[in-house]
Design a protein around this nucleic acid. Structure first.
Length: 646
RNA sequence: GCCCGAGUAGCUCAGACGGCAGAGCAACGCACUCGUAAUGCGUAGGUCAGGAGUUCGAUUCUCCUCUCGGGCUCCA
C-alpha cells in the first residue's frame, strides 16, 4: 500500500503496517521520538494499522501536540500512582495543560494530600515508568463502563453523560478507555504514547483545591499539578525558568529594593509606595502624561466616591456590584467608592452642550478606583483592592471611531515600547452570545473597526470569540516579558451602553442631536500592575530613566568625600538622581550594596580623580572604567535617560 | 468566597517534654581610611500575627480571627 506524508511524498508499506512501522521505515530517530500519528486528520496511537492511500503524519514532542501527548500520558501515570497509594481514592479528570498536566482526586473521608505526599507519589510514578506498561486502547459499552468504574462517582458522571463530556470519551453508547496493565484503567479518548517507558521527565509541582468541573457549587477536589517534558534538558530548562521567575517576583523585589509594601494595618490588597517605588511610579506617570498631552488628551480629575445613584444609572450596581465595596450610608443616602472612572468622565462630557467640533474629546485621568476583590484572589500589585488606572474615555462620532482606534493602538504600542516591552500580540474579544446589549449593526461596526485597527498593526491577533463585555467588543494588548511570560496590559473597549444610559449627545453639523461613541481605554491597565510587570521584566534593574537612584558616588577614602559630594551636587543640579555614601565602610562593601540595589551607575573617586577632575565609572553590566572626565559621564547619562534603553 | 499550606527581630531562618527566646544579614556606636561585590569589635532590637480556651504555667496544645503563599472561581 501507499501512504502520503505531510510533505506530499509517498511511501510504500506492506499491508497491515502500523504508524510506528512507517516511522521506523522513515528513520530510527523518528521511530524513537514518535509519540502519536495523525492519520487522515485524526490523532491516533502509533499502533494504528494504516490503510492504502492514507495521509499520515508522525507526531513528535518537538511540536506542542506531541508534548501534549507526553503530558496527557503522564497524567494517567499520576492517577495510577495515587490510586495505588491511597486506597479508596477516586479520580476526576486529568488533562494536559501548558507546561504540564494535572489530575483531580478525591480521597476517602475528605482527606487531603499533604505536600510531602508528592514525593511518595512521584516515586511510585517512576516505578510505573520503569515498568514500561503499555497504554491499551479499548471501547466498551456504557453498561460495562459503569460496572468497571462502579467505585468512581466522577467517572460515572462522565459515562452516564450527567457531566458534559468535553473529552468525548463517550459516543453513541461506546465508552473509550485506556488501560495500563495490570491494574489501572481510565476513561480516555487518547491517543497516548505506546508505553509508560516513553515518559519520565516530569516533576510534581503542587497540590491545590479545584472545584469538580470548575463550578464553585460542586465539591472541591484535590488537584495535583505536574510538569512534564520530553527530555531531561527541557525539564531542567523549565525548572530554571521557574527559578528565574521567582528571582524576579515583584513582591520579593519590592521588599528588597524598598519599593512598596502592604501594611496589615491598612488592609489586604492596599499598597503603600515607599520613596523609591514612589519615584519610579512618578516617572512612569510623568512620561505617560507627556505623551498623552502630545496625543491630544485633556486632563481631568474626579473624586473617589459618589452617590450610589450614579452607579445605578451607569449600571455598575447591576452588573458590577460584586466587585464594589459596600455602600456608606450618610445624609440619608448611599455613597459608593468608585470601581471605575467612566461615569465621572461622562458627567464632564454632559456638563454642557457639546458640538461635533469638539470631537473627538479625549479625557484622561490617573483615576484611583476601589474594587472589592474576593479575599483569595489578591496577589501582590497585580491584583489589588485599590489601584490607579491610566484611564481615558474618548467621545467621538461614529465616523471618527475607526481612525481613533487605529491611532490609539499605535499610540499604545509606541508608549509601551518606551518602558522596555517590545514583544506584543493582540486579542480581539467579540460579542458574547445571548447577553449583549446594542444592535447587531452596532456590534458589527465596532468589531470591524477594532479588527481593522488590529490588522493594521502588523501583530498577531488572536480571536477571543464571545469574550467581549456585554456592552461592547474590545481589544487587549498582551506583552511577553523578558522570560517569555505573557501579561495582559492595555484594554481598548468600545461602549454602546453608557452613552445611552446617560443619554449623551452632541450637536452635529446638521444641527441635529447625535449620540457619541465612547471608547474606554487603560494602557497600563493599572499603575500598580504595570509597575509589577516592569519590576519583573527588568528583574528590578530599572532602566536609567526609571531608576530611583541613577548614580551613587563613592569616595575611596573619607578625604575624597568632599569631592564625591561636589560630583553628587553637580549631577543633581543637572537633574539626575544621584546620592553619595561616605567612606564609613570599605569600598568593596559599598560597591556591593550599590550592586544589590541594582543601580545603573556607581562612580568611584580617588586621588587621581580629585587631581584630574575625573570619575571612575562602574556601570551595571559593564566593565569598570577609570579616569572618565565628568562632562563625558554627564553626556552619557543624559543620552541613557533620553534613549530609555539602558 | 472555597481547598491546602504558612505566620518567631526590619530581612532570611533556627528552636523547645508545655518551664528565662537564638543565629546571620540589616540598624546603631566605636575603631579601621581602603581603587571596584561582604573590615573588626560592641550595642540595641521580640505581646513568638491577634483573641479566646485548656493548664500551676502556652510562643509550643485546642478553637476563632487576621494576613501571606499556591490553586479553584472571578478579574486590571
Amino acid at each position: 500500500m501507499t501512504v502520503t506524508l505531510p510533505d506530499g511524498s509517498r511511501r510504500e508499506l506492506p499491508a497491515g503496517a502500523t504508524a510506528l512501522d512507517l516511522a521506523t521505515d522513515i528513520g530510527r530517530r523518528l521511530a524513537k521520538d514518535a509519540v502519536i500519528a495523525v492519520v487522515d486528520g485524526t490523532e491516533r496511537d502509533l499502533d494504528v494499522v494504516l490503510h492504502d492511500g492514507a495521509d499520515v503524519a508522525i507526531v513528535t514532542p518537538s511540536t506542542e501536540r506531541g508534548l501534549f501527548t507526553i503530558r496527557h500520558s503522564t497524567a494517567h501515570v499520576l492517577a495510577q500512582a495515587v490510586l495505588d497509594l491511597f486506597p479508596g481514592a477516586t479520580f476526576g479528570i486529568g488533562p494536559p495543560v501548558e507546561n504540564g498536566f494535572y489530575y483531580d482526586f478525591e480521597l476517602p473521608g475528605g482527606a487531603t494530600f499533604h505536600p510531602d505526599d508528592l514525593e511518595r507519589i512521584e516515586a511510585r510514578m517512576r516505578e510505573i515508568v520503569a515498568a514500561g506498561q503499555p497504554f491499551v486502547r479499548d471501547e466498551i459499552s456504557t453498561e460495562e463502563a459503569l460496572a468497571l468504574f462502579a467505585d468512581h462517582r466522577y467517572k460515572q458522571e462522565i459515562i452516564s453523560g450527567a457531566a458534559e463530556d468535553p473529552t468525548s470519551v463517550t459516543e453513541a453508547g461506546v465508552v473509550r478507555t485506556y488501560a495500563n496493565p495490570p491494574r489501572f484503567v481510565d476513561l480516555c479518548r487518547g491517543p497516548h504514547v505506546p508505553h509508560t517507558g516513553r515518559l519520565g521527565h516530569f516533576k510534581l509541582m503542587r497540590v491545590a483545591g479545584a472545584y469538580w468541573r470548575g463550578d464553585e457549587r460542586n465539591p472541591m477536589l484535590q488537584r495535583i499539578y505536574g510538569t512534564a517534558w520530553d527530555t531531561r534538558a527541557a525539564l531542567d530548562a523549565h525548572l530554571h525558568m521557574l527559578e528565574e521567575a521567582e528571582r524576579r517576583d515583584h513582591r520579593k523585589l519590592g521588599a528588597e529594593l524598598d519599593l512598596f509594601s502592604f501594611p496589615d494595618e491598612i488592609g489586604s490588597g492596599l499598597a503603600v509606595f515607599h520613596p523609591k517605588g514612589g519615584t519610579v511610579r512618578r516617572l512612569m506617570e510623568e512620561f505617560s502624561r507627556q505623551r498623552h498631552e502630545q496625543a491630544g488628551y485633556e486632563f481631568v480629575n474626579t473624586p473617589h466616591i459618589a452617590k450610589s445613584e450614579l452607579f445605578r444609572t451607569s449600571g455598575h450596581l447591576e452588573w458590577f456590584a460584586d466587585g464594589m465595596f459596600p455602600p456608606m450610608e450618610l445624609d440619608g443616602g448611599g455613597y459608593h467608592l468608585k470601581p471605575m472612572n467612566c461615569p465621572f468622565h461622562i458627567l464632564i462630557f454632559r456638563a454642557r452642550g457639546r458640538s461635533y467640533r469638539e470631537l473627538p474629546l479625549r479625557m484622561f485621568e490617573f483615576g484611583s478606583v476601589y474594587r472589592y476583590e474576593k479575599s483569595g484572589v489578591v496577589h501582590g500589585l497585580t491584583r489589588v483592592r485599590g489601584m490607579t488606572q491610566d484611564d481615558a474615555h474618548i467621545f467621538c462620532t461614529r465616523e471618527q471611531m475607526g481612525g481613533e482606534l487605529r491611532n490609539l493602538l499605535s499610540f499604545v504600542l509606541d508608549l509601551l515600547r518606551e518602558y522596555g516591552l517590545d514583544d506584543f500580540f493582540l486579542e480581539l474579544s467579540t460579542r458574547p452570545e445571548g447577553k449583549a446589549v446594542g444592535s447587531d449593526e452596532d456590534w458589527e461596526e465596532a468589531t470591524e473597526a477594532l479588527r481593522s485597527a488590529a490588522g493594521s498593526m502588523g501583530l498577531d491577533t488572536v480571536l477571543d470569540e464571545g469574550g467581549g463585555a456585554f456592552y461592547g467588543p474590545k481589544i487587549s494588548v498582551q506583552a511577553r516579558d523578558a522570560i517569555g511570560r505573557t501579561w495582559q496590559l492595555s484594554t481598548i473597549q468600545v461602549d454602546f451602553q453608557l452613552p445611552q444610559r446617560f443619554d449623551l449627545h452632541y450637536t452635529g453639523a446638521d444641527n441635529a442631536r447625535h449620540q457619541p461613541v465612547m471608547v474606554h481605554r487603560a494602557l497600563f491597565g493599572s499603575i500598580e500592575r504595570f509597575f509589577a510587570i516592569l519590576v519583573e521584566h527588568h528583574a528590578g534593574a530599572f532602566p536609567t530613566w526609571l531608576a530611583p537612584v541613577q548614580v551613587r558616588v563613592l569616595g575611596v577614602r573619607d578625604d575624597h568625600d568632599p569631592y564625591a559630594f561636589r560630583i553628587t551636587d553637580r549631577l543633581r543640579g543637572a537633574g539626575f538622581r544621584a546620592d553619595h555614601v561616605d567612606a564609613g565602610e570599605p569600598l568593596g562593601a559599598r560597591i556591593r550594596k550599590a550592586k544589590l540595589e541594582k543601580l545603573p551607575y556607581v562612580l568611584v573617586v580617588g586621588d587621581d580623580d580629585v587631581a584630574d577632575g575625573t570619575v571612575g565609572v562602574n556601570a551595571r553590566g559593564a566593565a569598570v572604567e577609570r579616569g572618565v572626565p565628568v562632562d563625558d559621564f554627564v553626556d552619557r547619562l543624559r543620552a541613557d535617560v533620553l534613549s530609555h534603553t539602558l
